[in-house]
């Protein structure tokens, strides 16, 4: 057994791993539901802020006043998605660890969070944004977050 396999088996055999793994399918189904609603909350909040940043909606209201609440909802959505995601992972670590789409998803997720913290979030706090940089950051952000979702769907198919 390699170290990786030992770690994965360790996670699966740990108390939380045992509890989730042995629980009936309803527990996994509930975790999957929380995962979907977390992703939905995150993506919707992102879309709403993007529409304002691109000047496509509600331009008569200031950007920071509009971005504050969806900004928080985005983090709430991310928290729900990551929290439920970790528990789903614990239920079958080897299944996900050796899945190519899962690797891609994690890399995309990390990139999306970095771009959000360093770019998107800062942009949304400004009173005024220049259209070109706003368009670039919003486009990159939307592509990254939606790619996380696509890679997530792909886990079940590869």
């Amino acid at each position: 057994m390699t170290t990786t396999e030992k770690v994965l088996a360790g996670i699966q055999n740990s108390l939380p791993g045992q509890l989730i793994g042995k629980a009936n399918h309803m527990v996994i189904a509930v975790l999957q539901l929380v995962h979907v609603f977390g992703i939905l909350l995150l993506l919707t909040s992102l879309i709403l802020m993007s529409l304002r940043l691109l000047g496509l909606a509600l331009t008569e209201h200031s950007l920071p006043s509009l971005a504050r609440e969806p900004g928080r909802l985005l983090w709430l959505g991310l928290g729900l998605a990551v929290g439920s995601g970790v528990l789903i992972f614990i239920s079958g670590p080897a299944h996900y660890y050796y899945n190519k789409a899962f690797d891609v998803k994690m890399i995309l997720l990390l990139s999306a969070v970095i771009v959000h913290v360093l770019g998107f979030r800062r942009l949304a706090q400004r009173q005024a944004v220049r259209p070109i940089p706003a368009r670039i950051v919003v486009t990159i952000s939307l592509i990254l977050w939606f790619s996380v979702g696509i890679a997530g769907r792909a886990i079940g198919f590869v």
Partner: peptide, 14 residues
């Protein structure tokens, strides 16, 4: 189908 929920039902939720 899943991801377009964010534009349709998601914005309805907000």
């Amino acid at each position: 189908h899943l991801l377009s929920l964010s534009l349709s039902v998601g914005l309805i939720f907000l």
